[in-house]
Simulated scan of single mutants.
Amino acid sequence: MFSLALTAELNGVTNLRPRDTEDSPFWYTFTVQCTSCRETHPKPVAVNRFENNEMSGSRGEANFVWKCKNCKRESTASIKLGPKPYEHAEPPTRQSIIEFDCRGLEFTAFAPEGEWLADAIDSGTKFEGIDCLGEGEWFDYDEKANEEVSIKDLKWEIRRA
């Protein structure tokens, strides 16, 4: 089991999470490496928790099924728990966002592409369409609280759970 952990400085917002529903699934984008031959896939791969793919030989299903071009082994990954909102903390703390079960592969890097959501701490304002986390920061204004809100210093880490 592995988890994707986040550490971020949230100012005025909490519950940072991807927009991830069955009607609008979030595509978690990773760099993937074969654990058998250590070959890294040349392009990022995307996984969503609502899509299941058949494994060869009728062995079941997984959210992501990949056959390494180098060693020809089939590997799988399934999202087991997630997404869990990242909550505001002072100082910022590392928190697990999703957990996944990888068999024969490792996710080595994460790209926070896609739409994210957050809630204002004081006013309850809902912020949608946060899509620039790949740049490492986001700024907006909370009209109800008359203050700037932001997300900065994002650090992503893939860890063994």
Rank of each mutant, 00 (worst) to 15 (best):
63 N>I: 03
70 N>C: 12
1 M>G: 09
161 A>E: 14
74 E>W: 08
11 N>L: 08
118 A>S: 13
19 R>K: 15
97 I>K: 03
126 K>V: 13
34 C>E: 03
104 G>E: 07
98 I>K: 01
5 A>N: 11
135 E>Q: 04
91 P>Q: 12
85 P>N: 05
81 L>I: 14
65 V>H: 00
118 A>I: 05
138 W>M: 03
45 V>Y: 04
139 F>C: 08
139 F>K: 11
100 F>Y: 08
148 E>S: 12
38 R>H: 11
96 S>H: 11
108 T>L: 08
132 C>F: 03
56 S>C: 14
21 T>C: 14
41 H>Q: 11
10 L>A: 04
159 R>V: 15
106 E>Y: 11
69 K>F: 14
148 E>P: 09
121 I>W: 05
145 A>C: 03
141 Y>K: 09
43 K>C: 10
109 A>E: 09
79 I>T: 00
8 A>T: 02
120 A>M: 07
52 N>S: 14
138 W>Y: 10
94 R>C: 00
7 T>G: 01
43 K>I: 08
94 R>S: 09
149 V>I: 13
133 L>K: 00
73 R>K: 15
19 R>F: 07
140 D>M: 06
76 T>A: 09
49 R>W: 06
157 E>W: 05
77 A>E: 06
58 S>G: 07
68 C>Q: 05
44 P>G: 09
55 M>H: 06
30 F>V: 01
95 Q>R: 05
65 V>R: 01
24 S>R: 08
154 L>Q: 01
13 V>L: 00
96 S>V: 10
129 G>I: 13
153 D>S: 13
155 K>M: 09
113 E>Y: 03
49 R>I: 07
151 I>R: 05
54 E>Y: 13
113 E>S: 00
57 G>I: 02
16 L>G: 01
5 A>G: 08
138 W>A: 02
134 G>A: 06
108 T>A: 09
93 T>S: 09
84 K>W: 12
108 T>N: 10
20 D>I: 08
145 A>N: 00
25 P>N: 13
112 P>W: 02
90 E>Q: 14
118 A>Q: 01
57 G>T: 02
2 F>C: 10
67 K>S: 07
70 N>A: 12
133 L>M: 06
27 W>F: 15
140 D>L: 04
91 P>V: 12
121 I>Q: 03
152 K>Y: 02
142 D>C: 15
13 V>T: 01
22 E>M: 08
137 E>D: 07
118 A>W: 04
148 E>H: 13
94 R>Q: 13
19 R>T: 08
40 T>C: 03
25 P>Q: 14
101 D>I: 07
84 K>P: 01
48 N>P: 05
144 K>R: 12
92 P>V: 01
73 R>S: 05
80 K>A: 12
36 S>H: 15
74 E>T: 10
48 N>V: 04
77 A>L: 02
129 G>A: 13
160 R>V: 14
144 K>S: 12
86 Y>A: 03
100 F>L: 02
80 K>N: 11
65 V>G: 02
41 H>M: 11
23 D>V: 11
106 E>G: 08
127 F>S: 02
